[in-house]
Nucleic acid binder design. Structure first.
Length: 573
RNA sequence: CGGGGCGUGGCGCAGUGGUUUAGCGCGCAUGGUUCGGGACCAUGAGGUCGUGGGUUCAAAUCCCACCGCCCCGACCA
């Protein structure tokens, strides 16, 4: 492609809205352009990168037997009513009405649609297993779009769905995807780790996230330095130390206006770990519960939801007042025999604790959990925090920011049951299809490559996803000789199946060199008057900054060698 | 949704009651000189000053409302 006829608009200055390295590089290089908050155009260069990524994804999904299809981006309300997610999705779902007033949404995901296909097309165990996938635009009205294309409101997702007759089949499909994803991200040249995840809204089945370690990662990954334990903070469990304080009778202490753990521990001059936080959770259809947690820990809501159900929410101040007779911050578990109380297992045997007195401006000291509170069950309900040890090996835990590139999870029969997607098994019994759901965010792969590989000067694309392989830089396109030589080289390289962008613009050299760096094309070939005179061409590798000088006749061979070398740097095996 | 910031040619910004046609740099167009790291000269095009309303002899500038974008938080794949 010729630069002077292309829609490539690099920016000389940083746009004011840049938020991260990848955002800056993608904007500056003219890969993307923002239209509205969280809504982007993929300009030709960016689109080429995304197409490269989708090709890799297709190859790897086809390899595990996936069949590509394309579902609609919009869908009618009814199917979402059936699964209950018309309500559940809330404000994250873009909704609209057609001319007749029927409700529609722009699909945030496609479980419902795929299950609808499955229920009409899958009749027998003989039709299983299946893996269906699509590469589709998804719409989610994010409360806060961020980091350019990393968290946007319209984004491209590869989503696949496995259909199996039983859990063994699902295990296999899950494993296939895990392997396919590993190959995909490796082929895209990214560094990543597979971590245990919590399914979130999707359900409680096994789930793994493919996390890239980058500064702007929005999730926290907990990683053991000693063994293979890797988990997102939500899914991570850590080992903490049980602490005991001097046992004694309960005494009331005056703590005027001191509500938070920091305020109370500061006021009483004790460590936060000496406190017990009492949290009151209510649900529209279930019994309220009290959760007890040591003051130096935070509650893990994912665990709470998995254990007790997604309908539980922190109680409002009014509810707390009504049940405890005190403001939030002054409540405690003692004397609450009519409410189920669950405690974090670090409180097992805890003595001498401080907690709310159920009386405004008062706390109590000397709480002995076993003696004074009827605990229904001790559970690990806390977030891991720095200093905790690995539950597998007691090794040291490390925390880092992870960008979620992909997520695989075992849905089980959640959707097939609610939507009635069943099949007849070998014995003629009707059973729900066992499903899995698997996603990859294409833009995140693109952004991640910029985050991990890019430098000050611009993007540095892994060759597998680079928009072009060779940047053919012609120094003076007004010079007929250079143009003719450049054309010759272009032909030879094209014949060797390279994808090439020729910078034939009549602008100063510096602009061309700078744009080459901004665009992040792996290999640069420079044609200039000096080179022509001596039949020398200069080849430069963006990633390694290596320079080679070759004669015209050696050029293609050398480029092939370099391409091979660059591919080998990130091969799967 | 709470707190804050911003909105002026394509991009980055200045102008915050009155210099008769709203500036600057970059970019763009035309001509010329250049041509191994954002070069130079000349000429030129391009603006509903986010939108609506108000105050005033006079508003980009003051007031009100709304919209948009961004940041921090809440929330979230």
């Amino acid at each position: 492609m010729e630069f002077n006829k292309s829609l490539i608009a690099t920016l000389r200055e940083d746009p004011k809205e840049i938020e991260s390295k990848s955002h800056r590089l993608l904007l500056r290089g003219g890969f993307i352009r923002q239209l509205a908050s969280g809504v982007y155009t993929y300009l030709p260069l960016g689109w080429r990168v995304l197409m490269k990524i989708s090709t890799i994804i297709r190859e790897e999904l086809d390899r595990i037997g996936g069949q590509e299809l394309l579902m609609p981006a919009m869908s009618p309300r009814e199917i979402w009513e059936e699964s209950g997610r018309w309500e559940e999705y809330g404000d994250d779902m873009f909704r609209f009405k057609d001319r007749k007033g029927r409700d529609y949404c722009l699909c945030p995901t496609h479980e419902e649609i795929i299950t609808d296909i499955a229920r009409s097309k899958i009749r027998s165990y003989r039709d299983l297993p299946q893996i269906w996938y699509q590469i589709q635009t998804k719409f989610r009205d994010e409360p806060r779009p961020r980091f350019g294309v990393v968290r946007s409101r319209q984004f491209i997702m590869k989503d696949s769905y496995s259909l199996d007759k039983d859990n063994e089949g699902l295990d296999k499909s899950f494993q296939f995807h895990k392997e396919a994803y590993t190959r995909i991200f490796r082929r895209c040249g990214l560094n990543f780790e597979i971590v245990d995840a919590s399914g979130g809204l999707m359900g409680t089945g096994e789930s793994k996230e493919f996390m890239a370690r980058v500064e702007i990662g929005e999730d926290t990954v907990v990683s053991c330095k000693n063994c293979d334990f890797r988990a997102s903070l939500e899914a991570a469990k850590g080992m903490g130390e049980v602490l005991k304080f001097e046992d004694g009778p309960i005494v009331e202490v005056h703590t005027p206006g001191k509500k938070t753990v920091e305020e109370v521990s500061g006021f009483l001059k004790v460590s936060p770990s000496n406190l017990v936080k009492s949290m009151f959770y209510t649900s529209p259809h279930e019994k309220p519960i009290i959760i007890l947690l040591r003051g130096d820990y935070e509650i893990n809501e994912a665990t709470l939801h998995h254990k007790f159900g997604f309908s539980y929410q922190p109680a409002t101040a009014e509810e707390i007042n009504k049940v405890f007779g005190a403001e939030p911050g002054f409540i405690g578990p003692h004397g609450k025999k009519d409410i189920d109380i669950y405690a974090d297992d670090l409180l097992k045997g805890a003595t001498g604790m401080i907690t709310g007195a159920n009386k405004n401006d008062y706390h109590i000291r000397g709480l002995n959990i076993e003696r004074d509170v009827k605990i229904k069950e001790f559970l690990n309900l806390r977030d891991v925090k720095a200093g905790d040890r690995c539950i597998q090996c007691q090794g040291e835990l490390e925390f880092y920011n992870g960008l979620e590139l992909g997520h695989i999870f075992k849905l089980g029969t959640k959707y097939s049951e609610t939507l009635g997607a069943t099949f007849s098994d070998e014995k003629g019994e009707e059973k729900p299809i066992v499903m899995g759901s698997y996603g990859i965010g294409l833009e995140r792969v693109m952004a991640c490559a910029c985050e991990q590989k890019g430098d000050e000067a611009g993007a540095v694309w892994p060759i597998s996803i680079a928009p072009f392989e060779i940047y053919l830089l012609m120094l003076n396109p007004a010079d007929k000789e250079i143009v003719a030589f450049g054309r010759e080289i272009n032909q030879a390289l094209t014949k060797a199946a390279f994808s090439i962008i020729i910078d034939n613009r009549d602008v100063s050299a510096g602009i061309k060199f700078n744009d080459f760096e901004l665009l992040g094309i792996p290999i640069r070939v420079t044609v200039g008057p000096k080179g022509i005179k001596n039949n020398r061409l200069d080849i430069y590798i963006r990633e390694t900054k290596e320079v080679f000088e070759v004669s015209g006749s050696d050029l293609v061979g050398k480029c092939l060698e370099i391409r091979d070398h660059l591919y080998r740097r990130m091969s799967c095996e």
